[in-house]
Write a protein that binds this DNA or RNA. Structure first.
Lengths: 233, 233
DNA sequence: CCCGTAGAAATTCCATGTATAATTGATTTC
DNA sequence: GAAATCAATTATACATGGAATTTCTACGGG
């Protein structure tokens, strides 16, 4: 018993160590605590996390496939991270393909799925009224990811999950933006109704609109940030 | 010298063993020689390829991130592969985002890039006249991948390369289809001219059309295949 | 003072050993 | 004869050792 109690990793259940190391590094890169340009040292990381070098190596190889680090043979891994241009690009890409996911979800909707999707939006509204920010964000994620899974395309789902993951931090921030959440929920409801009605065209149109609005919001947010930072970066 | 001469892997230059194993397995999965449902045995593969288990493990972790295998903790990796639905999905996804890549490429075109892109299409036409099928296919890949790189979006490029890679086999097959190559080259030229003119709208429109046509072609090809196989699969 | 170079330290890369979990198959029991 | 149990085999997961490569540092020549 007591599989691994030493270092930083004391986390979750059945997952392998490689996965946990991967997730921890990914989170660090995506939330900025591991900076772009930095390079990942196997031995150092393995000591910090209290695991051997093997799972760290595996995690780094995994990060490379996600394009979060660049791996130079015999030299190591440098962090790529997600900069502002990446963020804007991701939103642009989402406007193009997340609409497709909604379209497919609408075409493949069932009663059970209608119920679940509606419940998510209802819950989000409830949390909004109660001002539970953490849960609002959680429901926002869940709404989009549920649509990803309901589109029933392994490949599209996989791509969208990656994108979604990449911008998670900024989605949370935007909850705090004045007025955005209320609008977002209203937009979710429009998407929901279109999907439940099986109206692919409308579902796509509403989703494209929703993401464009989110993108507008991001741009405002980034401008605030850069003026706050005195034009740095 | 003579880094590794034993087993199946005698390949390339500076790449690490993990990468070579990864590429070999990826190729096998994508060209169907490793079937979906099959599961990958570390020891067996390492013996076949004449390497130790470590690089095989790393390669498998990499394949998981590409969604080409599913990894069940303590049980191993089962091949997912790319089935017909995946293929059709990939073409659908491409119609949505490859147009965006062309749009951005048009917005960021330079004289040097104009020259290179034009040369690729000219070469492809030349090889078509000469009936060099291998080179036609090569130029087809190069045309699209060059646009991916000219769109100057790390994230979009990465996604499109993955998709492109996934359908490589079918792109090659479609070269052999009667009349497709000639049309494809004509379509490439339309995309080329739009990009060179810096006309993002037109570049996107032509690209969407091009991929839709390729998709139509794929559907015909798949139908032929399934009737040839007597409705199996 | 700068540049090049040789040796040492650090780091990646691959191989192999060991523990733990899953699977198989034989044996027993009802 | 079927189901259950437990030992033996197999496979994965993680750790560790050692070879190869790169990076750092100190030294000597120009």
């Amino acid at each position: 018993m007591a599989k691994q109690e030493a270092g930083g990793i004391t986390a979750g259940a059945g997952d392998s160590l490689s996965n946990r190391v991967f997730e921890q590094l990914e989170e660090g890169i995506l939330d900025g605590s591991i900076q772009p340009g930095e390079n990942l040292n196997e031995l150092k990381l393995s000591l910090e996390m209290g695991v051997s070098r093997t799972p760290v190596r595996e995690a780094i190889r995994m990060l490379e496939q996600k394009n979060l680090v660049r791996l130079v043979p015999n030299k190591g891994a440098v962090v790529l991270g997600v900069d502002r241009k990446d963020l804007l690009d991701v939103y642009a890409i989402r406007t193009y393909i997340e609409g497709l996911a909604s379209r497919w979800a609408a075409e493949r909707i069932t009663d059970e799925k209608r119920g679940k999707l509606r419940e998510i939006v209802d819950l989000q509204e409830f949390y909004y009224i109660k001002s539970y920010e953490e849960q609002i964000s959680e429901m926002d994620s869940r709404f989009h990811e549920t649509i990803f899974s309901y589109c029933e395309s392994r490949r599209l789902e996989h791509m969208l999950r990656d994108l979604h993951h990449m911008i998670q931090r900024y989605r949370k921030q935007s909850i705090a933006e004045a007025g955005r959440t209320e609008k977002a929920i209203a937009e979710h409801r429009l998407i929901l109704e279109a999907i439940c009605a099986g109206d692919g065209d409308e579902a796509e149109r509403q989703t494209v609109g929703h993401i464009n609005n989110a993108r507008e919001n991001l741009i405002v947010l980034l401008e605030k940030e850069s003026s706050a930072n005195g034009e740095r970066e």
